[in-house]
Design a protein around this nucleic acid. Structure first.
Lengths: 341, 341
DNA sequence: TTGAAAGCGGTACCAG
DNA sequence: CTGGTACCGCTTTCAA
């Protein structure tokens, strides 16, 4: 009942061998005969020996811990569609490798940098994930300066550190084609926060997609990925002299806000206005009309980035990964132009 | 540029003292003269010395890490209002004390137990948080058996391990009074998952609150805290021979689902049906009508439980805490009975 | 007041 | 193949 923790010494004693042999046997290193190894393994199991992570960390110079610092207002995290799946995916990959995830959340960006700094200074983690990349993100320099292994999630192209990418372009193109097939020609855009790279990416994809279809990009309303941002964009767009017949939003949450506000203003969706989002959050399937969107895979993104970070730490290098493209999912918020109500 | 990490030995050498003196000086322990202490502190700062967490962990028998294992389907986590604030609150409390949080998410409950087990066996964490308590939750026995310090969040009364509580009763009572003042007499309830203690608590509070007001508890529809659960409850309730004029829901998400479905069925909220939720999630302020609810404080709950767990670990004991009661917030989804449309 | 030394629980090298 | 031992970086006890 006390603190009789079984250590490697106990195993060595009971097996009548040196601790070094126990270590080698249990870690599958050469230098022990098969019979000895078997015996050691058996005895270790009998004794319920679990190697101490602390001892291993100190001697092995690894913490077996990875860090994720979210730059969010914790109170807003509630609506974030990304992190449940993403974190779940990370674990799928790192837990079997013996790593755990330390999560931190900070609202202010200075604080975020401080925390990466501290994680590194304490040697608390062996590597970090970098999500929500901003344009000229200072964290990149930081991890490079610190020599801290890091994997970036959805950065732009030509990135200086290992990255996983899920390309939004194909999905956005498909959405535009879908809208054009329905007869839409004036397709507006509600953007995300201009300082975030995935926001920039999505908007560019929208713009170039339209140009490819020989259409002029419609009005762009600045948004911020929030429900309220979408709602206010609805008011803006519907007050135009020549309102668009369709709107793409940088994410589902703003699409849902936009739809709600449009309905409130007496505009039928999709009868008078088609709306598409991005992310495929669950809520989008619940609301009426359900939201046409581009499906992303946070879990897969998490899984791959977890795998990559472990590999980077253990092998010293890792290749970039691109997961399958995000795909269009047509639901009820998009329909033929001029179906009116 | 290499791995020239500054250790306690470097500081000792440069200061011309023994490492034990450095340790004492830096940790504010007695046994060093003030001048020596000052000099050591200055030199440590000059050298940029940061004590290694690994060394400390091994010798100090503490990992300076706390664990939170969520029993959720990661893919569903996206809409959970609780965890952003809760985790933020935990950090508010533990980060200054030098602790970090390891987060794990598992969909199956066996797996959850395994992970607590492993966290303890590895000595990866010094203590754990236990949220989402279930009736006869097996985790309680587990942590007791493992001798793992733990703090429970919102368990029932008379609980065997330290706990933080935020009482829902007062808020639910206030909601009922509010509805009765508006003229409602048939007040239904959409419950949460029956196996969770806070679900049971809330339903009991609703029942006893009504009895206190000398009203018969209205129909109860089993729900599951989800949007869809709320939506289906709407269909059930509105199909009754004598539908209720008001509904309380176990949480906001189901209230929002219920409202949406009621509207879809042509029932005006609050004109023909008043609806109240619980939690005060952000989404509830966006939807129309905005949702009358009971405000909870995940962040404060997190902060207190973090503080408690650290105290439990460092002092060996800690008193239960009750944070201020959850409070009624009246919004637009509740109104006078029979206001019709 | 100060310093030497014994752990904490492993890994890894090296001689036997 | 095996065992002894130095070491990882810190805390803590105990002499000096």
């Amino acid at each position: 009942m006390g603190d009789e923790r079984v250590t490697i010494v106990d195993v060595a004693n009971k097996a009548g061998v040196a601790i070094s042999s126990v270590s080698s046997a249990l870690n599958g290193r050469p230098g022990v005969s098969d019979v000895t190894r078997e015996r050691i393994i058996r005895i270790a199991a009998e004794l319920g020996f679990v190697p101490s992570l602390r001892g291993k960390s100190l001697s092995g110079r690894r913490a077996f811990t990875l860090g994720l610092v979210l730059h969010r207002d914790p109170d807003v995290l509630e609506l974030d569609p990304f992190f449940g799946g993403f974190i779940g995916g990370i674990e799928d990959a790192i837990d079997p490798a013996g790593y755990a995830l330390v999560l931190q959340i900070s609202a202010e960006s200075d604080r975020v940098l401080q925390r990466y700094d501290k994680l590194a200074a304490d040697r608390r983690v062996d590597g970090v994930f970098i999500t929500d990349l901003e344009v000229d993100d200072p964290r990149i320099q930081l991890v490079q300066r610190l020599g801290l292994p890091a994997v970036a999630i959805n950065p732009g192209i030509d990135f200086p550190i290992p990255a996983v990418r899920e390309d939004p372009e194909a999905g956005i193109r498909a959405t535009l084609r879908h809208l054009v097939e329905l007869g839409h020609r004036r397709i507006a855009y509600v953007s995300g926060r201009a300082d975030m790279t995935h926001s920039v990416q999505r908007e560019q994809a929208w713009r170039s997609g339209l140009l490819e279809l020989s259409l002029a990009p419609g009005p762009v309303v600045p948004g911020d990925f929030t429900y309220l941002g979408g709602a206010s964009a609805a008011s803006t767009l519907l007050a135009l002299a020549e309102p668009p017949t369709a709107v793409m939003c940088a994410n589902d949450l703003s699409a849902i806000g936009l739809i709600a506000q449009a309905q409130h203003l007496g505009v039928d969706v999709p009868g008078q206005l088609s709306v598409a989002g991005f992310d495929d959050i669950r809520l989008g399937t619940y609301v009426r009309p359900s939201v046409t969107t581009v499906h992303t895979s946070p879990r897969l993104l998490g899984r791959e980035s977890g795998r990559m970070l472990v590999e980077l730490i253990e092998e010293g290098a890792v290749a970039d990964v691109r997961i399958p493209d995000a795909e269009l999912i047509v639901r009820d918020s998009t329909g033929p132009v001029g179906a009116g109500r």
